[in-house]
Design a protein around this nucleic acid. Sequence first.
DNA 1: TCCGGGGAATGGTATAACCAATTTGAGTCA
DNA 2: TGACTCAAATTGGTTATACCATTCCCCGGA
Lengths: 264, 264
Amino acid sequence: MGQSHRRNPRQQVYSDESMPMKRQKADVTARLLAIFKQLISEGTLVQGARLPAERDLATNLKVSRGSLRQALKMLEVMGVVSQRVGDGTYLNGAAPSILAEPMEFLILMDGISMAELMDARLIVEPELAARAAQRWTPPDLAALHDSISRMMECGDRPGELIAEDLRFHRTIFRMAENRVCSVMFTIVHQSMHKLVEITSQMVHLDHTVRLHTRIYNAIRKRDPVEAKARMFAHLTDARKLLLQSQKAARRRPVAKRKLNAALS
Amino acid sequence: MGQSHRRNPRQQVYSDESMPMKRQKADVTARLLAIFKQLISEGTLVQGARLPAERDLATNLKVSRGSLRQALKMLEVMGVVSQRVGDGTYLNGAAPSILAEPMEFLILMDGISMAELMDARLIVEPELAARAAQRWTPPDLAALHDSISRMMECGDRPGELIAEDLRFHRTIFRMAENRVCSVMFTIVHQSMHKLVEITSQMVHLDHTVRLHTRIYNAIRKRDPVEAKARMFAHLTDARKLLLQSQKAARRRPVAKRKLNAALS
DNA sequence: TCCGGGGAATGGTATAACCAATTTGAGTCA
DNA sequence: TGACTCAAATTGGTTATACCATTCCCCGGA
């Protein structure tokens, strides 16, 4: 058959504007999504609630199990529900990973680089640090301090070091008391680490601990201006290291396994 | 049968940490998602490309059409692909709405209020305005100017006014040259408008035009500090209006249609 | 050259069946 | 009495098949 696309792709380039959101014949799947939104918003479904079995639910909603599963699969990927075979489908609590999968595709499709992710952090995180300095409570500060302590014990294992770094920044996000930014940039942070091969020379333990400590001290003093500046310095420094490391290893180590066969 | 959940929900409260990302038996759907990611990343699938028909693709990938459709449906909801009956499945270009649906669920499940969305904008948009002031090119500035002009011609139709407001802010996002923040806060902006009933008294045309013009002038002067301050003032003002409006109409106009029957 | 109709291709949905993992609970044995 | 065993029931996971509605392509007629 070859790849004889018999039709003109009809391009449909995204205009700068948002799509008119055609309210067509109400896709069954879209309708199901709307139903779940309403069930959640009106409190019929609460965190931890167990949904009826797929077969029953499909019957009650007057749709086929296949269509229902399309909707449930989307909810699962977004982290809204968890499905366990032999057990059931449960509504999750607030899902920190709700944006993770979409973000990965966003990075892929827009060709977003690690540098641009870092740039985004550079725009937002200093401001979040400033807010943290103004709003922290004692347990927050203790968490921040613990994070630094644990990082010093990490040794040279890059995995743990990265995890501890993420925890430090996430704590600051939480202290800034804005869940929108917190969730978004937690995902940005994670995506960044997925995108780059973290090498040990990129993360100097002592160096990172020193910068984190400066941020911590500024926050503890409730000095938003200094906290912002310290965070800015920390991220600028990190970006510089990442760019150096990328320039050093310009090669593309990714094995481009060919899957073209799948497309016949 | 009633709602006799015969099993202990086994709570599984989200810990503060990210999930260990269990690499289990590789869900067929998850595997398909990974395949699509790779096809996109290695350039086998490019913008506008037409995917093989579902039946062929399922055969080639050695999965059933139902499973494939679960994966395709997720990609469609995320805006990665578009499916048209009788036509085919196409890979979209950079999708501005890739985070829209997940964001709606995030708002629902975390109980995020309009105020918190506005707060997030207040954290980020001033900084983006500052960057815009440093980086704009003549066409950008013209777009900004046009947006203000069009807004003055909107009259009192709130729909168009909101659309024009969104365009103004999105233009600034683009000028700031960070697609991560641009996409994220475009979605935040849209979600906010979905969440509140925009009333005409909340959006004073002349007032908005005046504030937008101040931002525009500051950007034109390439003065990042003033641009930031002007944007901050604009959003602070908007937040005040929104909160007032919410306080005035504390009633819950949402008709809580009961769907509990669906859950048997 | 233009126009229209028929057939093929495609996504959308529904149904049925089976598999694999898990829970449940009755039965069994110490 | 209590702990263990194991088979049945339940549930999500997957596949296969059939049919419908829409869209596109192409060919024939005006």
